[in-house]
């Protein structure tokens, strides 16, 4: 049984057995849950199907959030990326659209997969559905890579945090981005050690990110932070695949993330008491949605 207490454990076990992290984790988790590997795989496959459906739902032109503060971002970006390509090119533009779409689907009470949280639910699909639909990577490989993402997430949850109320947005979008980066590296044929490096770089690039939701809603800035999450995941994965390593090991990055979270003021941990939530516009939007209420 794996302990999921360090990234190094995952790397060492996978390398010593000569398997991918995803294979190691599928085997371990199926045993831990008293399921067959096929059952565990099929459960993950269902999660991937929900992600694809969430992309489609969130790309609808009339997608609007419950509060009315946001909506239609996935559609706008999809149209722009398809017609003009944009600065990022059509592949990344499409990925941005998918991340926006899933986060928007969440804000409009659609069905999503928390990965690891609802607030960061657009990042894994933004990366993985894009590889599936644009790079034509087989579904089986994508689903397997979700076990790698999940394993990294388990270690992050144990060593640091995946809750915005505890560790700020670095714990939500940061974690999702690091999980996605590791999965991307594995999908592109990287080694377990390279998966760990991509995770490390993604975490390092989001250290200190605060959780400051306007009106306390999972919309502003959450939806767009899902986009930064995928951009950091893609760039971290590509750097590693180019042979650029992380100077700080993943486990140490996670320790740093925890200590940054521990020293983060409460106002910046999901309480809507600081950051963008306390800007004049943020406060005005809160009044617009909820009216004047006493605190």
């Amino acid at each position: 049984m794996l302990k999921y207490e360090s990234i190094q454990e995952l790397v060492d076990e996978a390398e010593s057995r000569g398997v991918r992290i995803s294979e190691l984790v599928l085997q371990d988790q199926a045993a831990a849950m008293e399921k067959t590997e096929l059952e565990a795989y099929e459960k993950m496959e269902l999660d991937f199907q929900v992600m694809i459906q969430a992309v489609q739902a969130g790309q609808a032109p009339d997608q609007r959030s419950m509060s009315g503060l946001t909506g239609g971002e996935g559609y706008k970006m999809k149209t722009y990326a398809a017609e003009k390509g944009g600065l990022c090119g059509s592949f990344l533009g499409g990925a941005i659209s998918r991340a926006l779409a899933v986060a928007g689907c969440n804000a409009s009470m659609g069905k999503i997969v928390a990965a690891p949280t609802a607030g960061s639910c657009g990042i894994l699909p933004g990366c993985l559905v894009s590889l599936y639909e644009e790079k034509h990577i087989p579904e089986k490989d994508i689903v397997m890579s979700m076990f790698t993402a999940g394993a990294f997430g388990m270690v992050i949850a144990k060593k640091a945090s995946i809750a915005g109320a505890q560790g700020g947005c670095q714990a939500e979008c940061g974690s999702a981005s690091a999980m996605a980066a590791a999965a991307l590296v594995e999908l592109m044929g990287g080694t377990p050690a390279q998966c760990a490096d991509a995770c490390a770089i993604a975490i390092a690039n989001q250290l200190g990110l605060v959780c400051d939701p306007v009106a306390g809603l999972v919309e502003i800035p959450c939806i767009k932070r899902n986009v930064s999450g995928i951009m950091i995941a893609f760039s971290s994965a590509d750097m590693v695949l180019a042979g650029i390593d992380s100077k700080i090991p993943a486990d140490e990055c996670l320790d740093a993330m925890r200590s940054v979270g521990d020293t983060m003021p409460e106002a910046l941990r999901e309480t809507a008491g600081g950051g963008l939530a306390s800007t004049p516009t943020g406060i005005r939007m809160k009044k617009q949605v909820f009216g004047d209420q006493k605190e």
Binding site: M44, D47, V50, S65, A118, A149, G153, K158, L217
Partner: peptide, 17 residues
């Protein structure tokens, strides 16, 4: 905790809490 606590649950948004 298992891998489906991280990749999952499937839920209706917007907020787990």
């Amino acid at each position: 905790m298992n891998v489906f606590d991280i990749i999952g649950p499937v839920m209706i948004g917007p907020s787990s809490s």
